[in-house]
Design a protein around this nucleic acid. Structure first.
Lengths: 187, 187
DNA sequence: TAGCTTTTTTATCATTTGATAAATAGCCGG
DNA sequence: CCGGCTATTTATCAAATGATAAAAAAGCTA
């Protein structure tokens, strides 16, 4: 089965016409390590499905990078803010590993959401997943200091930990890499 | 026109059958100041429409309160995490002012979302708004210190500022009330 | 208005995190 | 295997924030 359908089947059941039309709208994509799926300043016009690989969503503030999220296979995602508001993105999407997958353009998504109620349900569910994740993130940033947030990340995202640099982990935790090194050393 | 429809009309256009059925599912609600719309530990089973009033979503960590968000009229919202996962809520919803409005139960929402594509679109849009807001929040917490986050709040949410205590603002910013007082004093 | 409670401010000291620089370790291409 | 990158650690000092206590201000109610 097509990897996009393997993924969407676990979220919502699509009838054959919806499945077929959805698949026709997805275009294969391939990115070497370090390539940008979306540059800051561009508008997010696609959802991306990652079949293999890892992508980070990040932005820069005065030469310091901060990471909003990591997206690893299999996942269907986009830079939501720019996608929803049509504003230029503050964030870039950058492949941390050689990444392959597919993408679908917003006009196709909007048309398919209008034509097939179940596809609208699918994209609503994607927003629901994103909301749950962001709420957890905000909650942790409010109540836990960097040391605890680091431990939680290690506990809950152990497989991801093997694939990202400590610098990127620090940028995700919202601290400097030097601070993270200190935390790892145990004070 | 019914205040719920005045609100939803600005998000998505509903046809008369959908409008009527939607309205029939909303039940009037009234809360005095200090009342709980949802207690921590309960499962979030409703969306709430606030016609007049103000509600905070917050949780406690070792006697310290942290605030996830303020919801002021007019708004249709819920504690999303518990609503979506059916898990007991970590968060409470508490009226900061005498609050009036309506609520709609999850089984009704699910039925209406199945029956009326446009109602599904409406609730998808509510998730979209929530996502945009949370992304901005995460972004700010990563890149700005408490002083800047305070200034941004004052700039962007001036009307809300008049209606909440400094203690609640500190709990929203993720700092102690004493720290916020120091920030306001200007170092 | 007096007295009580709650909110906000001020002060002091401890802890966490940042900035910077330098040392060490790891990695990769020739 | 060497040399040069890049990533990570260590060290030092500064800045931001927390914890605690107490004072001052504001609000409420009898």
């Amino acid at each position: 089965m097509h990897p996009v359908l393997t993924y969407t089947d676990r979220i919502v059941r699509l009838e054959p016409p919806a499945r077929d039309e959805l698949l026709r709208a997805f275009v294969p994509q391939e990115f070497p390590k370090g390539a940008c799926l979306l540059r800051a300043g561009q508008t997010s016009q696609h959802y991306h499905f990652i079949e293999h690989g890892l992508v980070k969503s990040s932005f820069y503030k005065e030469d310091k990078e901060f990471i909003m999220n990591f997206f690893k296979e299999p996942i269907l995602f986009t830079e939501i803010n720019s996608y929803l508001t049509s504003a230029p993105s503050k964030y870039q999407l950058l492949a941390l590993e050689p990444t392959t997958g597919y993408r679908i353009a917003r006009p196709d998504i909007e048309r398919l959401c209008r034509q097939h109620h179940a596809i609208e349900t699918l994209f609503k569910q994607l927003l629901a997943f994103a909301s749950v994740g962001m709420m957890k993130r905000i909650s942790e940033m409010l109540e836990e200091n960097a040391t605890v947030r680091y431990r939680l990340f290690v506990q809950e995202k152990a497989p991801l930990l093997q694939r990202i640099s400590l610098g990127d982990l620090a940028a995700y935790l919202g601290i400097t890499q030097v601070s993270l090194s200190r935390i790892r050393a145990g004070q």
